[in-house]
Structures are given as C-alpha cells and as structure tokens.
Amino acid sequence: MSTLFYISSIVAVASTVMVITRYHPVHALLYLAVSFLSVGMIFLSLGAPFVAALEIIVYAGAIIVLFIFVVMMLNLGRETAQQEKEWLQPKVWVVPSILVLILLVEMIILLFSDNKDIMRISVVDPRKVALSLYGEYIIAVELTGFLLMAGIVGAAHIGKHKRSSLHRFLQNGENGNGKAHTGVPPEQVSNEQTVLHD
C-alpha cells in the first residue's frame, strides 16, 4: 500500500504544482484532471473505493467539463482553430499522459495482484457509508439537497444573458443625471393619468 500511495501522492503534488504555474487555462485543466485522478488513486490505496469512484465521476468528470465549457465559451469567436492547433502540441499532452500512465500501471498492479502485502488495508465499504448517510446524517443530506437546488437556481439566474444587465441606478449614473431624470418620471405621470381617467 505504502509504495503505491507514495507514487500517487508524488504524482498528485507534481500535477498540482503544474496546475498553479500554467498560464493557459486548458493546460491547467489538463493537469487538474491528472491531479484529481491521482487523488482518486490515493483514496483507492486508503481503502475507500466508493469515494475514489465518486472523485473520478464528479470531480474529474463533471467539474472539469464545466470548466472546459466555460473556457471554450469565453474564447468563442476568435481564431479558435489556430488556438486549438496551438493547444494540442505534443509537449502539452505528453507529460500529463506520462503521469496518467503511471497511475494506470499502479491501479493495474493494485487490482490484479494476489499478493496480500499490497492490499493490506481494511476497506470501509459503501454499505456502512450508506447506513451512516441515511441514518444519522439524514438532516445533512436534505440540507445538501437544498444547497444543490439553490446552486441550480442561482446559476440559472446569474447566467442569464441580459441585454442591459446593469442596475438602473448604475445606468443613471453612467448616462448622466439629466437624461435619467427626464427618462423615468413622465411614464409614471402618464400611468397615473390614465388610471385616474379610467
């Protein structure tokens, strides 16, 4: 266990250092995926296979895909073909591929070895996790549901692409005070007049 753990933790630290020193977001995301995979490998060597699967599915799957979507949407409209040609040079993806290959060899050794010295760990199985999660932590599970709901609603509300997205006070400040004062009040007066005449 310890050798596999040391190798995967070295890979994790190295890829995280590469994440925070990259200048390009896509390169940083590539190394971030390697970092999440290696942390998942650490979980597997700690005896938590369920959490390792969740780490790979949610972190290395969903969150990385969200980041990549946002980076691609921010770079929309420019010479994207030239940019992708620059991004996919071999010196960009060779080092992450080597790190991932190290992790893959490690996992194959961990899964297909009958030697009990490597897997001398006691696994906290998902059954105990599920019983604890839906037993004593049921309130926290429901609060997490509320949190995810609030996240969905908040993201849908914030991400709405409005044409004039500044607040009206800020717009008045930008346009100048005279135009703002002439703009808003006559509508109210006309509304009141129509209401009174009706």
Partner: peptide
C-alpha cells in the same frame, strides 16, 4: 464511515460552488 460521508457533503458543496462561480465568471 463518517469521513466518507463528509467527503460526499464536500463534493456536493464543491459542485454547487463551481456552478454558481462559473455563471458569475461568464
């Protein structure tokens, strides 16, 4: 199993945080 339960909560919180944060970035 409490550590893994807490990891699940951190996971859900990170997912909600990153969705709202990326909407703010856009």
């Amino acid at each position: 199993p409490d550590g893994q339960v807490m990891f699940l909560f951190i996971l859900a919180m990170a997912a909600a945080e990153v969705s709202v944060g990326l909407a703010l970035v856009l």
